[in-house]
């Protein structure tokens, strides 16, 4: 796995060097929702670039549009207007089915409530995204075992989600997000449901993914402490970007 990971990093940097494009380009994106009788505009022409290898935290008050932005980038929602490119591809133009395939190849998800399948054990949960590939059963197994070992759960493979603590479940979710070697990982309040100690471990794990494996991570959080594990923090307010601050690397 680590070898495969290494190849990907080279590949990504090479692509970047070739056309100097940001990994994610959000340009003049508008998104509104119908809430009851009124239409609420959540994103109002938001523009943002994310470079490959970045670990970005999105912050903002509730209703600022941070989760909506994340959903759009992750390709589980479509913008009303504007441009949304990932690796140069306009994902706003993809059909429903193509978008699903695109997600399978390019996006790893980490959710607040882990969203593991309760009827599948840890190993099977991690293996799940590989069902979307052509890998053989044994190959899927091997990769899932590797991924679980990577997040420190080699001894919990056959445990079901309800037999794991919150922190452990989130590790399984991280392993699941990693397994298909996605272009970017999106995390929506990944520590929102965890105690401080587990939260710290999860954030360190994410940092490690970013720094050691070169994974691009976009994380929505309302927790300043969590956000400080990222390289940069973007602040959203009322559907537009209000500021970007670089986080100083800490000795940790």
């Amino acid at each position: 796995m680590s070898e495969a990971q290494g190849n990907t990093i080279e590949h990504t940097t090479a692509a970047q060097a070739a056309n100097a494009m940001p990994l994610v380009r959000v340009h003049q994106v508008v998104k509104s929702y119908q809430r009851g009788a009124q239409r609420v505009e959540v994103l109002r022409g938001l523009t943002l670039d994310i470079q490959a290898g970045e670990f970005l935290a999105l912050m903002g008050p509730s209703g600022s549009g941070k989760s909506t932005l994340l959903n759009l980038i992750a390709g589980i929602d479509q913008p009303d207007s504007g441009e949304l490119r990932v690796q140069g591809q306009d994902i706003g133009q993809l059909s429903e089915g193509d978008l699903a395939d695109w997600r399978a190849r390019n996006v790893g998800f980490i959710f607040q409530f882990y969203n593991l399948m309760p009827v599948l054990n840890a190993l099977e949960n991690v293996e799940l995204p590989l069902m979307l590939t052509n890998l053989s059963r044994s190959e899927r197994r091997a990769r899932a075992e590797n991924a679980l070992a990577l997040v420190g759960l080699a001894d919990r493979m056959d445990h079901y989600p309800n037999e794991l603590s919150g922190g452990q479940q989130q590790r399984v979710a991280i392993a699941r997000a990693l397994i298909s070697d996605p272009t970017l990982i999106v995390a929506d309040e990944p520590t929102g449901d965890l105690d401080r100690e587990s939260a710290g471990e999860i954030l360190q794990l994410m940092q490690a993914l970013n720094q050691q494996l070169g994974k691009t991570i976009i994380m929505v959080t309302h927790d300043q402490r969590a956000a400080e594990h990222a390289q940069a923090i973007m602040h959203l307010e009322k559907g537009v970007l209000s500021s970007r601050e670089e986080v100083q690397p800490r000795a940790n």
Binding site: I76, A100, A104, V107, F113, N115, P118, L128, P129, L132
Partner: peptide
């Protein structure tokens, strides 16, 4: 519902 959303997010198609 949540599981269905997750499966779809992971890239499983409607079908």
């Amino acid at each position: 519902v949540g599981e269905i959303g997750t499966l779809r997010a992971l890239g499983f198609r409607r079908s």
